[in-house]
Structure formats: structure tokens, C-alpha cells
């Protein structure tokens, strides 16, 4: 151990400010980089998931529309038939 007590350790032989500034900035920058990198991964997964859900919804909506159209078509046919039968 190079230091006699905790105060001497923090003082760093008079260079405390510079040493702790260096170690502090390094720790902060690297922790921030790790957090942001993990966040980015999460966000990427989230974005892809959202795109799939949107796609799925669109497909479903299209399907419904199709069904609706078919229904309409059949009902209009009925209408036409009724029209034909009126005179």
C-alpha cells in the first residue's frame, strides 16, 4: 500500500484533482457508452417489433377489408336480384 491513510489516498500527493478528474471522466465516459450501447440494442429490437406489429395489423386490416368487400358484393348481388324481381 502506497498511502498511509484515506486522506493521503484522496490527496494523491497534491495531484488529487488531476488524478481523480482523469479517472472520473474515464469511468463516466465508459459507463455512458455501455448504457447507450445496451439502450441502442433494446431500441433496435423495439423498432423491429413495432414494424412487425404494424405489418401484421395492416395485413389483418386488408384481410378484413377483403372480407367486407366480398360481403358487400354478395349483399349487392342480393339487392340486384331483388331489383330484378320487382318489376
Amino acid at each position: 500500500m502506497q498511502f498511509e491513510n484515506i486522506n493521503a489516498f484522496f490527496a494523491m500527493g497534491g495531484y488529487g484533482f488531476y488524478v481523480w478528474l482523469s479517472y472520473g471522466v474515464t469511468a463516466l465516459a465508459i459507463v455512458l457508452l455501455i448504457i447507450l450501447s445496451k439502450q441502442k440494442h433494446k431500441n433496435t429490437l423495439l423498432a423491429i417489433n413495432q414494424r412487425y406489429t404494424r405489418e401484421l395489423k395492416r395485413k389483418e386490416a386488408a384481410k378484413q377489408q377483403q372480407e367486407l368487400k366480398q360481403n358487400n358484393l354478395s349483399s349487392s348481388e342480393v339487392v340486384e336480384k331483388t331489383n330484378e324481381s320487382t318489376p
Binding site: 500500500m1 502506497q2 489516498f9 494523491m12 500527493g13 497534491g14 495531484y15 482523469s22 479517472y23 474515464t26
Partner: peptide, 24 residues
């Protein structure tokens, strides 16, 4: 880092400011 800050000897000229070496 523990070794660098606590146990590595200080430099004969630069004293404890030399410990910045270990991350710089």
C-alpha cells in the same frame, strides 16, 4: 485499477500524478 491507484509505486519525478498513465 486497484493496483494502479493503491499499490504501484509513485514515479521518482512525477509522484502520484503518474497514476494517470494507467488509463491514459
Amino acid at each position: 485499477i486497484t493496483w494502479a491507484l493503491l499499490f504501484a509505486p509513485a514515479d521518482y519525478q512525477q509522484g502520484d500524478s503518474f497514476r494517470i498513465f494507467y488509463i491514459h
